[in-house]
Design a protein around this nucleic acid. Structure first.
Lengths: 127, 127
DNA sequence: GTACTTGCAAAGATTTTGCTTCCAA
DNA sequence: TTGGAAGCAAAATCTTTGCAAGTAC
C-alpha cells in the first residue's frame, strides 16, 4: 500500500461523480504532482481486478473512455441522457432478482454486472 | 446506400459472433479489398446513431475495443466468462419489466440498454 | 448536378509495455 | 533486503478529422 494508491483510492471513494482515468490523474496531481499517469492506469486495473471499483462506459457519450466508481454495496443502474449528458443512478429489487435468475438458470457465477441505459431524461424528452 | 454500407450491414447481420471494428473490416476486405477502415468506423457510428446496431464492451476482456451486433427485436443480456472468455446471451422477462420500471419511475425514455455481466460460467466455476 | 460518402493520410486519444529506480513491509 | 510498485519514455491500439476525389440518386 503505497501513498500513491492510498491517494487514488481516496479520490475515487470521495468523488461525487464518475471519473475517467485522466480526470482521476488530474485530481491526484493536485496532491502529488509527481504521480504518473501510468500509475493511475495500473492502479485502476488492480482495483478492477479485485472488484473494488466498477468500470463504466456510460454509453460512450464522450468517446471511448472509461469511468470508475467505488463498488457500492448494492448494485445500481446508470441512465445516461443522450441529449444533456446527465447521468442518473437507479436502484431496483428487480435488478437483484434478475441477477439471481441468471445465476440459477445459467449456473453462472456473477462477479460484476453493468447495466447502462441510454435515452432521454424527463427534462429532455419534453423538448 | 452505397455498396460499402450494404456490405458492412450484411456482414453484421449474418455474423454468428460479435465483431469489433477491425474484425468487421477484415471480413469486409475479403469482399472489397479497397474498403477503408475509416469507412467501417463511420458506418458503425451511423448505425449506432440510428439504433440499428448495439454497441457492446463485453467487459473488456480483450482491451478497450467495442463489439457490435444487429439490434435484436428482443433485448438480451450478455454474460462474459472472465476465465474462458465465452460470451452467452440471456433473455428474461424480468429484464423487460426492469426497463418498464425505469421508464415509469424516472420518466426516462430508453433508447438503448446494455446489460453485461462478468463472472464464471458453469464449466469454469467447477475448476 | 449536388449533397453525401469514400479513401487516404495524419493526428488525437487512450491504454500498455519495457526497463530502471525506488520504497513499503 | 527484497519483491512489488512507481516513474519515464516509447509504443501499441483504437478512433477521429481534414480534405480531395468519387458516387448514388
Amino acid at each position: 500500500m503505497t501513498h500513491q494508491r492510498r491517494l487514488l483510492i481516496q479520490i475515487i471513494q470521495s468523488a461525487e461523480s464518475h471519473l475517467d482515468a485522466i480526470a482521476l490523474w488530474e485530481r491526484a496531481r493536485g496532491q502529488d504532482p509527481t504521480l504518473n499517469k501510468v500509475t493511475v492506469y495500473r492502479t485502476l486495473a488492480m482495483l478492477k481486478k479485485y472488484g473494488l471499483v466498477d468500470e463504466l462506459d456510460l454509453m460512450h457519450l464522450e468517446g471511448g473512455k472509461h469511468f470508475y466508481e467505488a463498488k457500492a454495496s448494492r448494485g445500481h443502474i446508470h441512465l445516461a441522457c443522450l441529449k444533456c449528458g446527465r447521468i442518473q443512478e437507479f436502484e431496483s429489487s428487480l435488478f437483484e432478482k434478475l441477477k439471481g435468475q441468471i445465476e440459477r438458470q445459467r449456473r453462472f457465477s456473477i462477479k460484476v454486472v453493468r447495466v447502462e441505459a441510454g435515452g432521454y431524461c424527463d427534462k429532455c424528452r419534453e423538448q
